[in-house]
Amino acid sequence: MKSLLPEMTALDTFHNVLGQLKKKEASSMALKAVERLWKLFDAREECLRERSISLFKELLGKTIRKDKEAMKRNSWKVMVRLVLHISDEAPSVVKASKEAVVAIAELFKWKEFKELAQKEEIWKMSEFLLAKDSSRAEQYVLESQPYLLSPQASMREAALRFLGLAARRLAGRNEATMDALLTELGLMETREKDPSIAALAAQTGLILTALKDRRKSGLSLRGLCRWCR
């Protein structure tokens, strides 16, 4: 517990200070503090994950109107990790993550996303985010990729499913990112101890490879047709 004391003490102190400020002052402080909290979302200790995510959710409620756009930008940056943490093995972290995502949905006025979060329908939440802004597909891939190395099997599986869905939007658009991802999936297939997740990694790799080859072939054919005109 000694190693946790500095982080937990800092979070508790910040929470207490925040409670004594007027909303205008708290909003300004919230914008400066959120990025520091993100680093603790993936802490090894359950209490740090839960406390930092809960505090982030509280900061969303402290945001005044003039700071809402800035807070929305910050929320986009943590959307993936919060959605994935709904698959956390610790019930307290799942609860905190779900509440934080609901708070983000309220900030954006996304009624459907809020309902999906309350039901913990991660697959549909992923589809919703991609439908809202497909240009963020590469960002989603890069943000979910580190979770393929999570010590939690549930997090690895959730990241793999989310990543696979987002990566389908990259085929024919970003070959470098797609190639790096396919390499990572191949490594995951060999190192993964859970047979079902290893099989999912292999299946995801096959689907993305087929999609990449099909798009590449289609582009080549279109190029040939233009050359023949």
Rank of each mutant, 00 (worst) to 15 (best):
I64T: 14
C47T: 12
R161W: 07
V78A: 14
A137V: 00
I53D: 09
K95L: 14
E25Q: 13
K109I: 06
E89M: 05
V80C: 12
F128G: 01
L160K: 08
A117T: 01
L31D: 07
E106Q: 12
L31R: 05
A90E: 13
A30I: 05
E115W: 04
E69K: 11
K124Q: 10
I86R: 09
A33G: 04
E115Y: 00
F41R: 04
E58W: 08
E99N: 15
S154H: 10
Q152V: 03
K119F: 01
I53T: 13
L48H: 08
H85V: 04
S92P: 07
L31T: 10
K124T: 02
R44T: 14
Q145K: 13
S75L: 10
L55E: 11
I64Y: 01
Q145S: 09
M29W: 06
Q152Y: 12
S135G: 03
S134K: 10
K111W: 02
E45Q: 13
Q152N: 04
V80Y: 02
A30K: 05
F41Q: 06
S28I: 02
E69Q: 08
L129Q: 00
V83K: 05
F128L: 00
E115R: 12
S97H: 11
E120Q: 14
L84C: 09
S126G: 05
V102Y: 06
W76T: 03
A105P: 02
E50T: 13
L129V: 04
S126W: 00
A70N: 09
S154P: 09
A159H: 09
K23C: 01
L59M: 11
S87A: 15
Y140D: 00
P91V: 12
K124G: 07
V83R: 06
L37W: 11
S150N: 13
E121T: 06
M155S: 12
V78P: 07
V141T: 00
N74P: 07
K109S: 14
E106R: 11
R73P: 01
K77L: 08
P91E: 14
K62D: 06
S52I: 10
F113L: 11
